[in-house]
């Protein structure tokens, strides 16, 4: 029987799309789960102890966020949750951003961006800024339609283009294969192990 998740706490919309894809593949039932989207790193962490408290109170809670430029995930979590995570709370962070998990399915990503497979990073968890890398790949090799969506307009200082979120969401929903991606992304591999352990708990 599938383990039922009650609450999923996510840093952004893309994490939500990843959770919707990933959790059901790992025998976690999300059909009754409430999805909370923090829409930003600051709010994600602000609320993290409340999510842990919900787990303490008996709910099964999963949280997905980005490590960003923090040196160590353990220290970052300890700062926000000094007494550690509850047994029913799984908090996983992509190293350094969710995009490394997506780039890790290199075949599908190359096909999606219409770029040569050889251009994809071998070790996406080691990228300093996976989002920049994804946008850079799109800019250098992508089709016009891809560039218009993923790359910031000339002269604009944003990190991603105006159609980035829906375009990448589409990739996650229709193409991304978490188990294939896990082979190249250790942080995704560890996340899958932790979620599988939760499903058996």
């Amino acid at each position: 029987m599938k383990k039922s998740v009650d609450f999923v706490w996510l840093e952004g919309e893309l994490e939500a799309a990843v959770a919707r894809k990933l959790l059901p593949e790992l025998s976690l039932d999300i059909s009754n789960a409430a999805f909370g989207v923090a829409k930003g790193n600051s709010r994600f962490w602000q609320e993290i102890s409340r999510r842990n408290a919900s787990a303490k109170a008996g709910l099964t809670v999963v949280a997905l966020g980005d490590l960003e430029q923090e040196p160590c995930a353990g220290q970052l979590i300890a700062r926000h949750l000094p007494r550690g995570c509850d047994n029913k709370f799984v908090l996983r962070l992509a190293v350094r951003m969710l995009e490394s998990w997506l780039l890790a399915d290199s075949e599908k990503m190359a096909a999606f961006l219409h770029i040569p497979l050889s251009k994809l990073p071998i070790d996406p968890d080691n990228l300093k800024h996976p989002k920049h890398e994804l946008v850079r790949l799109a800019q250098q090799h992508g089709t016009k339609a891809i560039r218009q969506d993923l790359v910031p307009e000339q002269g604009h200082s944003g990190i991603v283009g105006k159609g980035y979120r829906p375009r990448i969401e589409e990739f996650i929903q229709s193409h991304w294969r978490p188990r294939v991606a896990a082979k190249r992304s250790p942080s995704l591999r560890r996340a899958i192990l932790a979620l599988e352990a939760l499903s058996k708990r």
Partner: peptide, 14 residues
Amino acid sequence: AEDLLSDPGISPEE
């Protein structure tokens, strides 16, 4: 609306 402004594709110039 915070929601409207929460899209990552909005640049400071906009």
